[in-house]
């Protein structure tokens, strides 16, 4: 029974990832063929909605049956609420940066390589898939798959950081878009820097979870740290779902 449960959960994760991949491809096609801000915004919202519902399990906030305030379940629910409140707060930082981008750039964008943007976006999206797989595995007590998927997530997360800071930043500077050159540089480095900082904290969080997971501290019933790390990691992905079109797709190159 538990086994089929697990297979169903894994399959749902794959299905959602396929949807996300199709939407990302569609988004790229729309941006290249018929640049429409409305369509791009709707696609980004749909992607964010899929991640928030199926990968971050926002419905767990109001699907709770435990009423004893001293139980592990109830305390885990309080922590879950606290984390979501934190993400709400954090979302305002990124919202403020998006406001700065649209105020200062308007309907223009810097001449970045759109394919490179698509590649680093895909890396983060795939990492979200493996994060979900790791959490699902732990929720069913499957420690082996948990560790494998978590390690892949970590590697992809580090790969994303390398892609942004090691490849995208130097190539922007080569094109003359330095932090101090103009508002293209200022906003680009601030947005990717702030987001990269969050990816970095997520990587540290995952490393802690990996270490404690290898020491056998989590079980199918008690793994709230794994869930918290997963929700945080997906949140960082959701932010990039909006930042990617804002930086690479919306507007005309000047």
């Amino acid at each position: 029974m538990a086994h089929t449960d697990k297979q169903t959960a894994f399959r749902l994760g794959v299905l959602i990832f396929v949807y996300l991949a199709i939407l990302t491809a569609l988004e790229f096609y729309v941006a290249v063929a018929v640049p429409s801000v409305v369509v791009l915004s709707l696609i980004a919202l749909a992607k964010a909605g899929l991640v928030v519902y199926y990968y971050m399990h926002i419905y767990r906030l109001y699907q709770e049956t435990e009423t004893d305030p001293n139980s592990y379940e109830y305390k885990a629910g309080t922590l879950r609420l606290g984390l979501w409140l934190f993400l709400l707060s954090d979302a305002f930082v990124f919202g403020g940066l998006a406001v700065a981008r649209f105020n200062l750039w308007g309907m223009t964008r810097p001449p970045f390589n759109q394919v490179l943007g698509l590649i680093i976006t895909s890396v983060l999206l795939v990492s979200s898939f493996f994060m979900n797989r790791a959490e699902t595995a732990m929720a069913h007590g499957d420690r082996r798959n948990f560790v494998i998927s978590l390690v892949i997530t970590l590697l992809l997360g580090i790969g994303f950081l390398v892609g942004v800071i090691g490849i995208e930043w130097p190539s922007a500077i080569r094109e003359g878009i330095t932090p101090s050159a103009n508002t293209f540089g200022a906003v680009f480095f601030m947005m990717t820097g702030m987001h990269g900082f969050h990816v970095l904290t997520g990587v540290i969080f995952l490393l802690i979870v990996l270490r404690n997971g290898l020491r056998g501290l989590y079980s199918a019933e008690r793994h709230r740290a794994v869930e918290a790390a997963a929700v945080y990691w997906h949140f960082v992905d959701v932010v990039w779902i909006f930042f990617y079109p804002a930086l690479y797709l919306i507007g005309t190159v000047v």
Binding site: N103, L104, P179, S180, A181, T183, A186
Partner: peptide
């Protein structure tokens, strides 16, 4: 860092 968010000379506002 001289980032020009609010510097009109660099296109800031």
């Amino acid at each position: 860092l001289g980032m020009g968010f609010f510097d009109p000379a660099k296109g800031g506002n």
